[in-house]
Design a protein around this nucleic acid. Sequence first.
DNA 1: GCAAAATAGCACTAAAATGGTCCTACTTTT
DNA 2: AAAAGTAGGACCATTTTAGTGCTATTTTGC
Lengths: 158, 158
Amino acid sequence: MLRISRLTDYATVLLAALAGEPAQLKTATALAEHTHIAAPTVSKILKQLQRAGLVVSTRGTHGGYQLARPPAQISAAAILDALEGPVTLTDCAAGEGHCDIEHTCQVARVWQRLNLAIRRSLHEVTLAQLAGIDAAPARFPALEREMRAATGRPPVRP
Amino acid sequence: MLRISRLTDYATVLLAALAGEPAQLKTATALAEHTHIAAPTVSKILKQLQRAGLVVSTRGTHGGYQLARPPAQISAAAILDALEGPVTLTDCAAGEGHCDIEHTCQVARVWQRLNLAIRRSLHEVTLAQLAGIDAAPARFPALEREMRAATGRPPVRP
DNA sequence: GCAAAATAGCACTAAAATGGTCCTACTTTT
DNA sequence: AAAAGTAGGACCATTTTAGTGCTATTTTGC
């Protein structure tokens, strides 16, 4: 849990490779060689990314793939959505609660809220940062401090 | 992805039920009836929670389970760890990078950092909040604002 | 106009994680 | 000794995930 699927990880690596020279077309096989990911898998992922509008493809002899937007304009959330669709932390959340403890059970509510917080974080991470071509590294420094302020107590022990 | 397994969700519900009257022993079957989770599954989960030290068990005729600590001292991170072990967002992270783009590829690094931020958030959420018996609701308000400050740019579009 | 080089889309298979069940052993109380 | 409970492990079914293969379709170059 709280895991990124391997294909999604591959996708970020492929996009990072494309982010190197955003203007240049790269073929699926070239990307496969460069990243050491199996060629059919690369193909499959690029098709999904194309459908999601993150890369544009050119067919024909000198065809290939390139980013649809500059790396700073592509968020990690967009990549995850492209590969895995919009995901929720739990499925109980949207369902009709048929457990006896509905009224006292905040569980689903809290998960959903946390889920939203995570999605927002993902939204702030850009491909430029993932690819390491952005001067400003991705940082999440104040999360802990903020959480503590919000919950009004010192951190509990694990 | 970014999903909590159903068993982990069940575990939080069971713990929330136990958090109602922390002093009281509850049997596995009683919890099953109360939460509408299948009895063998409840049993299985409680065993795992016991091994992880989140609940204590008493055997014998009037045995049962109860929380090992007050609800405010049990974090969501501890629950996840108990059910799923310490999780990483990707496995590439700890491995020896054998892709050609190592030097320019920050992918693993960023994922790890995000993973850490999420874990810290989970660490701040207490069972008391999950169970709704705490006056202060779990909130993650400033995450977005903080991220924006950290990355120094306006939010990208999805 | 035809061949080559590329992507597009689909279906299918194999493997792994997940969820759930069952059975047997141990412990405490009556 | 019996009953009520937990402990632990083996086991199976289902679903999800990862990967492969095949057949179009499009563009370039000769």
